[in-house]
Design a protein around this nucleic acid. Structure first.
Lengths: 141, 141
DNA sequence: TATTGTTATACTCTATAACTATA
DNA sequence: TATAGTTATAGAGTATAACAATA
C-alpha cells in the first residue's frame, strides 16, 4: 500500500504500514467470517454492540453513524428475527434488544470471528503477551 | 468497535479482541484521513493499488471485489481527474493509469494516512521495533 | 469459444433534511 | 422548544447476470 516510503534509519511509517496491513487483513477476515453466518459486517457489529438493550440513538453514537441509519439496520436485523424494538419508559425511546436467536448467533459469531481473524497461534505465548501489552499501550489503556 | 465482543478472558481471544479494536481504530482513522482529501476509502485504496498501471480485471482481483465494480469506481476517479483508461496491446484490456494529479494526490495520501492512523509515538523506539517484529511474524513475513 | 470490460438490476450502508410523536 | 425515531432522497460499494468487442 505504501511502497514508496522514505528510508529512514528507523521508520515509524513502516510500523504504520504494518498496522494498516494487519487491519486490512482483519477487515477481510471479519467480513468473510460473518458472511458465512449470513450477516453483513455492519449487522455483525450491531449484534456485538447489543450485549445489553440499547436506545437506537445511543447505538448510532456507538457505531459512529447518523441516527437515521439505525432504522434500516434494525429493520433488516428484525426481519431475520435477531432483534426487537422495546419501547422505553420515555415513550420516544426504543430499546433495540436481541432475541433469543440473536443472542445465540452473537455467541457463535464471537467464537467464529476471534478464531478466524488472526492466526495468533503463530506467536509463542510470551510473544502473545507482549503483543497484547503493546497494543493496550497503543490504544491508550 | 467491539467493546463487548469478547467477554470470556481467554488469552488468545483477548489478543484477537485487541487486534480487532486496533484494526477498527485504523479503519476510522483511514476513512477520516482520506475523507479530508475528498476520497472514499475504496477510492483511496484504489489509488494505492495503482502505483503501476493495471488492467481493470487485475485490479478487481487485488481489491477482492467483482470485476463489474471497477467500472463505477474508475468512472468516479476519472470524473475527479485522478485516473485514465489506457487501452492495452490486447485491445480488450484497459489499463487504469494515474494522471499527474492522481500521482500527486497518492503521494499526499501516503503521508497523511501513515501519520494519522496510529499514534505510534506513544511507544518507545524499542517497543516500536518489537511491535514491528511481532506484526511481521503474525502477517507471515 | 473464452476473456475483458460494460450495463442492468438489486441490496446494503451512508449522510442530509424534513417529518411524527413524545417530552 | 427539544429530543427520539422515522421517512425521503441521493450517492457509493457490492454481487449476479447478460451483453458487446476482441482474442
Amino acid at each position: 500500500m505504501m511502497g514508496a516510503m522514505v528510508d529512514a534509519p528507523f521508520a515509524p511509517q513502516v510500523l504504520g504500514h504494518l498496522l494498516i496491513r494487519a487491519a486490512e487483513r482483519s477487515r477481510e477476515a471479519f467480513a468473510s467470517a460473518v458472511d458465512s453466518r449470513g450477516l453483513t459486517p455492519t449487522q455483525a457489529r450491531t449484534l456485538f454492540a447489543l450485549e445489553q438493550p440499547r436506545a437506537m440513538r445511543d447505538l448510532a453514537t456507538e457505531m459512529s453513524c447518523d441516527a437515521s441509519n439505525i432504522t434500516g439496520i434494525a429493520d433488516r436485523l428484525a426481519r431475520q428475527g435477531l432483534v426487537e424494538r422495546v419501547t422505553g419508559e420515555d415513550r420516544r425511546v426504543k430499546l433495540l434488544t436481541l432475541t433469543a436467536e440473536g443472542r445465540k448467533l452473537r455467541r457463535q459469531l464471537q467464537r467464529t470471528v476471534t478464531r478466524s481473524t488472526f492466526p495468533v497461534d503463530t506467536l509463542t505465548e510470551q510473544e502473545q503477551r507482549e503483543l497484547e501489552r503493546l497494543l493496550r499501550k497503543l490504544l491508550g489503556e
